[in-house]
């Protein structure tokens, strides 16, 4: 008895290095961000950075703009990816994982190189990319994040029990009704995880815009410009605001997932 107790204790100690690492390099940086967000350059406590953010039309406009871009990108990705995932999941094609691979393979190619390719072809079609900044941003983000939407949707849809659709059809539902009332509600967890994979990066990945037409006007780029200006305090405030947004999104999606899983157990 004492022997096993002692050994258990040994195994538990293995988590100490990783716990220390997490505290030092994951928790501490966030605390430092909070500290810097509420101090000024000389280290005195202040709300100036917060006031700066909400009184400046430029930063506020950036916030609204990045929310708009993130929402539109997410919807476009969902509209493109859902049919793809649905067709793949229901297809009787034997080698369908090869097809799935084709759709998610770009995930492994460096995204800056993919955006370079997109930039070349968009410039060829449109000429000056800065003419349609919103459109090109959405195209760029969609190009970048589409695989991350397809994969979770496919996973959710391929797990669905096919006999449920047959049962609904036998009970007289049209294929449209089957989709709206059976397939769609059951694929909500996949939709949620796809949305979280796309929504957040498209609020912060300013490199896509920067590469396409040398401009940045989403939340992530504010951090970039404060970083370039060595303004740690205002940069920290933006990071903190982003952290709060991320926290809210994570809480909301977790709640949704819980509801969904409890709904499934009832079913």
């Amino acid at each position: 008895m004492t022997k096993t107790l002692k050994l258990r204790f040994n195994r538990k100690q293995l988590c100490i290095p990783y716990a220390a690492f997490l505290i030092l390099f994951v928790i501490c940086p966030l605390l430092v961000i909070i500290y810097y967000a509420f101090t000024n350059g000389t280290g005195q406590f202040t709300f100036d950075n917060l006031v700066n953010f909400f009184s400046n039309t430029n930063t506020l406009g950036t916030l609204l703009n990045s929310i708009a871009i993130a929402c539109v990108t997410t919807i476009v990705c969902l509209v493109i990816a859902y049919p793809v995932a649905y067709i793949l999941a229901r297809s009787k094609f034997r080698r369908k994982y090869v097809l799935l691979m084709l759709f998610v393979l770009p995930m492994w190619i460096n995204f800056t190189l993919r955006i370079t390719a997109l930039k070349e072809i968009l410039s060829f079609i449109e000429g000056n990319l800065a003419m349609y900044p919103f459109l090109n941003t959405v195209i760029g983000m969609t190009y970048d994040f589409l695989p991350f939407m397809i994969l979770p949707l496919y996973t959710a849809l391929s797990k669905l029990d096919k006999s449920l659709f047959e049962a609904a059809e036998d009970l007289g539902a049209s294929s449209f009704t089957v989709f709206m009332r059976v397939v769609l509600p059951l694929s909500v967890p996949g939709i949620i995880s796809g949305v979280t994979m796309v929504l957040l990066p498209s609020m912060t990945n300013y490199v896509v815009l920067d590469m396409l037409y040398n401009s940045t006007y989403i939340m992530g780029s504010l951090i970039g410009s404060y970083f370039a200006a060595y303004d740690w305090n205002n940069g920290s405030m933006i990071s903190l605001i982003l952290l709060i947004i991320i926290f809210i999104i994570t809480l909301a999606t977790n709640k949704f997932n819980d509801d969904q899983s409890s709904g499934r157990t009832v079913l």
């Binding site: 997490l22 940086p29 994570t250």
Partner: peptide, 20 residues
């Protein structure tokens, strides 16, 4: 704690590490 870098935006992770 393990989940924090996973859900966090890379910009924030990078910037906060830089500040610390």
């Amino acid at each position: 704690a393990n989940q924090i870098p996973v859900v966090n935006a890379d910009v924030v992770t990078g910037f906060s590490l830089c500040v610390l």
